[in-house]
Design a protein around this nucleic acid. Structure first.
Lengths: 204, 204
DNA sequence: ACATGGTTTAACCAAGTGGTTAACAAATGT
DNA sequence: ACATTTGTTAACCACTTGGTTAAACCATGT
């Protein structure tokens, strides 16, 4: 039973750390609070993860490894751009609704410390635009979509899907929507965003 | 000369506080660092602003009062939606290039403490969607633009314009662009984003 | 039974935190 | 000239922070 106990504690710590780090950020998080949430002694955090920085990095990598496959779906899949936009928009929103703190966490911490991405860039599965670039250029050339660079299109897709979660408090205030109404707005975006993008780029 | 001296110090503090708070956030900022940056004694921060929280609020309100008029340009102006989209996209990007930390700062701190907006909501000039809503409904009814709710359209415009600044490190990594190339990408968006939006909503 | 190893705990620590204070400097009113 | 008010400083304070440690705990192999 020893082994089970270890892994259990280690996982409990990571679980608690996810909650605290993702809602309060590296600077706002407190080791004691993580320990309390995990229901264990603070010394255990250091026993398993050595330092706050390393515990944070474990949480960040974990979060990033959840997000990366989602983005690869639009960058590396073989179906048409139109199809990918439709699928991605729906899938991504569904995904983030289950992990609401995720995009904001990653964006905030990367702005705090951009060099941190370098550690991650050579891990395989790191999203890369190259394949998508060729596909966009091809569909533009074939006249399927209007002229646009892959970077701009990718940025637009990311923006329309991620931003509503990141800027939720701000947009809620401007649009006078309560929490539930905003969630409905988000839900509607599963199809509306795809239509918006396709209208914008498709040649008629 | 007394008055001049006072205002000078008070302003130097606010200036330094802007830099530190906007780049490190409330939790990451240190009063001593702000004092050092301003080149004055730490006690002066409390003399003029009482506490870290109040100094932070002064910085936040200042930042917000810079941003709000920009957003009101698209919500309250009387010109057509197409025209406003064009103007806003260009103006807003120009504006943020001059204040690069601003959107991220506001979004970050609002996520940390959403209730904070309530303090701000009744100040006049607080962006409100109501007028824009009527305009969108009218243009939809007149067949100028495709059916879309004002909230979704507003959210899309915000997303496409703000997100590239907020997610800069992330997008730079995925698209393998260096800082200068990314700035060019942003520069191009001054017109590309407007075209993208108008293509998406305009009835042909 | 007992030695062994990893696991867990309470108590502790040095460094840093926001904030205060008492004395000093400088400008102003009279 | 002098008292008063305002601005400024260095030293200080209570408290929190991440991190350590030494002793206790406990499952296992022999």
């Amino acid at each position: 039973m020893r082994k089970l106990k270890d892994e259990n504690t280690e996982e409990q710590i990571l679980d608690a750390a996810k909650h605290i780090f993702q809602s309060k950020g590296m600077d706002g998080a407190r080791m004691q609070e993580i320990a309390d949430k995990a229901g264990i002694n603070k010394a255990m955090l250091h026993y398993y993860y050595r330092s706050k920085q390393l515990l944070f990095e474990a949480v960040f990598k974990n979060a990033f490894s959840l997000l990366a496959p989602q983005l690869n779906a639009i960058l590396n899949d073989d179906s048409s751009i139109e199809e990918k936009v439709k699928n991605f928009t729906s899938d991504y929103i569904t995904f983030i609704v289950k992990h609401p703190y995720l995009p904001n966490f990653i964006i905030q911490e990367l702005n705090r410390n951009p060099e941190f991405l370098l550690k991650m860039k050579d891990t395989n599965g790191f999203p890369n635009i190259e394949k998508f670039k060729k596909q966009v250029d091809r569909e533009v050339e074939q006249g399927i979509i209007k002229p646009i660079s892959a970077e701009q299109l990718f940025l637009n897709i990311m923006a329309l899907n991620i931003f509503p979660f990141v800027a939720k408090p701000l947009i809620r205030a401007f649009t006078n929507t309560d929490n539930e109404a905003y969630n409905q707005l988000i839900e509607a975006r599963k199809t509306e965003v795809a239509d918006f993008i396709i209208n914008a780029i498709k040649n008629s």
